[in-house]
Nucleic acid binder design. Structure first.
Length: 201
DNA sequence: AACACGATGGACT
DNA sequence: GTCCATCGTGTTA
């Protein structure tokens, strides 16, 4: 099975996000089914990291679609995004939660403190920092194509979707805080925050 | 050169 | 529900 091609990502971030729910992301011995994502659009999205223009950190967002944008949040968590849209259009989709498909032992090892009992269940992968940690991703992977060691594959079935406001963007303008650009798989318990999510008509 | 803060997660009440 | 660790980044001076 081939990774999703760059053309898959060369669309509006919200459309890409909808098609990524249920897709598979793989890296470093772990394969995950993506269960929750958020779209960060451009222009006019005051929650977007690129809202103030190009910086060294967000540079991958300005490049071609189908690449990773990974950054450090709160000084300790790495967050994984997929760049969407053509070059010069800095939009992305944040991966917020996933279900384990393969490499559960590696996920548990990476997500549990040394010596602690391995964690079990959704606590392993419900949250964007958890997903990147489980995949062993850090800022060195920012800008990497999604067709190499880090890769994304098409979903086999299309899950029903839930949508709701994005999480952790209190700094954004009200319209952007309220925009229902967080999407989740209705069939999954591996979702970070149920609150505010509703079926899409 | 200094500074404020964040697309979070875990521990705790 | 509350508190806060922890540091790269962007902004301001």
């Amino acid at each position: 099975m081939d990774p999703l091609p760059p053309s898959f990502y060369d669309r509006d971030a919200l459309a890409v996000a909808a098609d990524l729910v249920g897709a598979v992301v793989a890296h470093a011995g772990v394969r995950l089914r993506i269960t929750e994502v958020e779209a960060y659009r451009y222009p006019g999205d005051t929650a977007n990291h690129a809202r103030m223009g190009r910086t060294p950190r967000n540079a991958p967002m300005w490049g071609p679609p189908g690449h990773a944008y990974v950054y450090l949040c709160y000084g300790l968590h790495h967050l994984l995004n997929f760049v969407t849209g053509p070059p010069g259009h800095p939009a992305a989709v944040l991966v917020r939660a996933a279900e384990p498909l393969d490499g559960l032992d590696l996920v548990q090892a990476r997500r549990s403190p040394p010596g602690a009992r391995p964690k079990v269940g959704p606590v392993l992968l419900t949250g964007p920092g958890k997903v990147a940690q489980a995949l062993a991703l850090n800022t060195s992977h920012s800008g990497a194509p999604l067709s190499g060691p880090l890769a994304v594959y098409t979903r086999e079935t299309t899950p029903a979707l839930l949508s709701g406001p994005r999480v952790g963007i209190d700094y954004a303008e009200q319209a952007d805080r309220e925009a229902p650009w967080r999407l989740a798989a209705a069939d999954s318990k591996w979702v970070s925050v149920r609150r505010g999510l509703h079926p899409i008509p």
